[in-house]
Write a protein that binds this DNA or RNA. Structure first.
Lengths: 343, 343
DNA sequence: CACGCAAAAGGTAGCGCTACCATTTTTTGC
DNA sequence: GCAAAAAATGGTAGCGCTACCTTTTGCGTG
């Protein structure tokens, strides 16, 4: 009668403990570290919990223990296939650990990122995985204040907040364009969309490679801030052709654009690679099965997700890796679409 | 000196209240319902919170208030483009509401789904969005016990746990195959992968349409439980051709397979649609830009995500929709790949 | 100017769990 | 066989916030 607050009506740990004939704290231990109990009590608590259908209250647990078993993941897009591979690696690596993944989507917005970071901060995750190295000063301050293991993925750079795993987009694109140069192509165009920092750095690789070969010409460049798509690849390529009809190859900022370019070539009866060589970036699954197969830069996205989680888990367990920055590199996958130019 | 437990060292609401010169409960109200404060106190609390860099403790809030502001989302795959559109709709619709999305990935595993549901149950989400209508009895029991608004998406069926928004995969595939029949194709193959329940129902639509036209022949069918991919589409199509060389059209269980089939046709110098008609399912972005453009069944995935969130939010606010099952339908996008057969 | 009423603000007591000891029981070594 | 060490178990007191209720304040009215 004197109850001040309506009970939730759900089974609590105390009820389980009572049925099992142990103290609440023993029951609590059962859920966190069953080995600490004697086999008989362990058995009793297990069956009591099952009988009552006990579901632990995570909020209470988090409040009392001052921590959670959540790893926060911040990525800029769910639509982009690149991230789905990373996520697969993340989910696979977290499987079997007690940690669950909390995913948030910044939609390429730096402000959204700040906001989501603050939300994560309020949740006190055990670890954090964030995309890229271009956080705002504000975001970086939040990250540093969060005091949990953290990995920046997709890129590598000089000043990790904590850890990093990625590769150099600039070097990768440099390698792709240098390959085209080595194959004998001269008027090599660049098609780019969604000019986020990673795409910018890829463009930097293109620019450097072209300058190194004394082939750089701003008229060969066609970019847009619009989000990437296959259709857009065709459009940009068409625009590029009208600006520079003499191009003999195109380096695409990503594979979607490359496929769009291929379709546009088919529409215009341009044969690939005889009339137009194509290289992409990321080596998504369709690149190898396209006709002709398309050259691309393979990036180790799945492995990136896996490593990030592994590093976070190790750090949570107290084993911070000795080398905080891991370069996963890339592989140039040379296929028919960049076969040497017949002289 | 008598402290039993180390304080977390973080700013608490009490500190903010003290600095603002109000009681803790008033400060609490500021964060939940600022309008309830007089303008002067509102101002004072706001600046105190800012000055101290206060971050609310969500665990404590959830424990005290017995609820969270999280909508749980359970999907079977992050790799499949179909779901990324749904997710985009979900994120867009939740934007601006106070609710945040907690995403979990079942990886097409029913057991994983059960486990994740139990995790959600422990978190007491304010609402839930789950994929499909094929939950285990166990999962369904958990769903029913959760006592929060819930939408099943992607399909519609007779017995919603709470609400549903989707369309009939069987009817959609029936329409696609009937279209091929109407165009004059007779030996229409079916290529399917990842034979989950949704794919099974699509196959049912194919079977019914073929039987209705007296064209059904089990030799025209090529399916595999292997996860879907573009490459796989080519492989399955090649297998199908060796089993039934006389086919004149293929209906593909999804668009990735359809693109794989197109590439395989290009490799074999089969012209589409003259030698081989192709239809896909979902109408992903690349279908319209392929050469030739590929016919597909457009499914309203983005809208599905949006509607699901809208319905959950309405239900949380107490306005359960009068009609719990929403059929978003589909549109047959007829393109060149299924142009009428020349007699 | 007292009165009533609504709006604003505050006091108190948990929400369900676990940290931190203290205590009891069991095992081990000689 | 006994002391010492180790393992298992229990009691108490919060974690930081909000629900519930009470008290105070502001303001129009007879």
């Amino acid at each position: 009668m004197e109850r001040k607050r309506a009970k939730s009506g759900e089974i609590r740990l105390t009820e389980v403990a009572k049925l099992a004939g142990v103290s609440p704290i023993t029951a609590s231990r059962f859920f966190r570290n069953p080995e600490a109990l004697s086999p008989s009590k362990r058995e009793r608590v297990a069956s009591a919990a099952k009988e009552l259908g006990y579901v632990p209250n995570l909020a209470a647990r988090a409040l009392a223990s001052q921590r959670t078993e959540v790893i926060g993941v911040l990525i800029p897009s769910l639509t982009n296939n690149v991230f789905s591979d990373v996520l697969r690696g993340i989910y696979d690596a977290s499987e079997g650990s007690r940690y669950s993944i909390q995913l948030a989507n910044t939609r390429y917005s730096i402000l959204q990122e700040e906001q989501l970071l603050r939300l994560f901060q309020a949740q006190k995750p055990a670890g954090l995985i964030v995309t890229g190295i271009d956080q705002t000063a504000e975001s970086r301050a939040v990250l540093e204040a969060m005091n949990c293991p953290m990995v920046q993925i997709m890129e590598i750079g000089p000043a990790p907040v904590d850890m990093m795993v990625g590769f150099s987009h600039q070097d990768a694109e440099f390698a792709a364009v240098s390959h085209l140069v080595a194959q004998g192509f001269q008027r090599i165009g660049f098609v780019g969309a969604q000019m986020d920092p990673r795409m910018q750095r890829r463009f930097g690789g293109y620019r450097d490679a072209m300058k190194a070969a004394a082939l750089f010409d701003p008229r060969l460049i066609m970019t847009t801030p619009v989000p990437t798509s296959i259709t857009l690849g065709g459009t940009l390529f068409a625009d590029l052709l009208s600006k520079a009809p003499d191009i003999d190859a195109v380096s695409c900022g990503n594979d979607d654009l490359a496929l769009g370019v291929l379709f546009e070539c088919q529409r215009r009866q341009l044969s690939v690679p005889e009339d137009m060589a194509i290289v992409g970036f990321n080596d998504l699954e369709f690149m190898a099965s396209a006709v002709p197969p398309l050259t691309s830069v393979r990036t180790n996205r799945y492995e990136m997700g896996r490593s990030a989680v592994t590093m976070v888990l190790a750090a949570i367990a107290g084993n911070h890796p000795p080398e905080p920055v891991v370069d996963l590199g890339f592989q140039l996958m040379i296929r028919e679409s960049s076969s040497p130019r017949r002289a």
